[in-house]
Write a protein that binds this DNA or RNA. Structure first.
Ligand code: MN
Ligand code: MN
Ligand code: ZN
Ligand code: ZN
Lengths: 144, 144
DNA sequence: CCTTAAGTGAGAACGGTTCTCACTTAACGA
DNA sequence: TCGTTAAGTGAGAACCGTTCTCACTTAAGG
């Protein structure tokens, strides 16, 4: 029961299942769905149940250990988030590789909103593109 | 069969159902779900079927007549989009009122991505806040 | 008109996610 | 080291927004 996995769940309890889930999350290079995470976990005995995987993802998102970075085929895409401070994500539409980017929502945007009598509470920003290795592999937008 | 509704569907055919759907969309001040749209339509006889409403929304989104502006209770939130050119949306979390905002993703963000060997293809930006009338009505984030 | 590809809709199916509930257990204090 | 208890687990069912099926209707171009 590694102590480092403990922190990933914030105030939540630790369990052997959650320990394995954290490690499985760390085994991904980039974005993954709940189903893919469960699939990875099923390679070992004592596979955590489906409900446990979903509950763990919710807890991991609350603590900031993972973040939602889009969706694929109707399923939420998650990714490990190890960058501190407010930022957003750049997701490769070829392989799912995720990179952190600084927030583009600056004072001028806030002021533009204020001009429309809005007080901004939060925002969502996600950038999509093609990473270096996918470009090198000849990835094309048309071939999905 | 108004000619103006025709354009909202791009290359798609017009039908009495789609005509009514366009008008129902225009009756909303801000964001709405497919269900709410269908609910509005059901006030009159010859209510378009559920499948027709979903298909119309897909067509209206393709043509740019509406845009997705978030989700509520697992359902996609749409809003009329009458602004030309590339822009994003500012949604009131109190009443759903939607306002257009200019895109904050500028050259510096593109360059930051390029520094990480990424070529950006597209992006999603949505701002959330509280509009003037909701502020005046004492809307608080805590009370949802 | 004629032809035909597109649209319609009642109902079934789909599928990601959440819920139920009996059972187990991590965490904490005595 | 225990006892207590709120939290976690998981098989299976339920949920529910959305999509599909398929027989029928119709908009639109020639
Ligand atoms: Mn991150
Ligand atoms: Mn718009
Ligand atoms: Zn890639
Ligand atoms: Zn408002």
């Amino acid at each position: 029961m590694a102590r480092d996995a403990r922190a990933a769940y914030g105030a939540h309890r630790m369990s052997p299942q959650r320990e394995r889930i954290v490690h499985a999350v760390e085994s991904f290079d980039g974005a993954f769905t709940a189903e893919e995470l469960a699939q990875t976990l099923s390679a070992h005995p004592d596979t955590p149940g489906q409900a446990t995987v979903y509950r763990a993802l919710t807890a991991l998102e609350e603590s900031g250990f993972v973040a939602r970075v889009g969706e694929r085929d109707g399923a939420v895409l998650y990714a490990r988030c190890d960058t501190d401070g407010h930022h957003h994500h750049l997701v490769c539409i070829g392989c799912g590789h995720v990179s952190a980017v600084s927030c583009p929502v600056d004072e001028s945007v806030i002021r533009a909103a204020a001009r429309q009598r809005f007080v901004i509470t939060h925002h969502e920003v996600t950038l999509y593109g093609v990473c270096r290795s996918c470009l090198a592999a000849g990835w094309t937008h048309e071939a999905h």
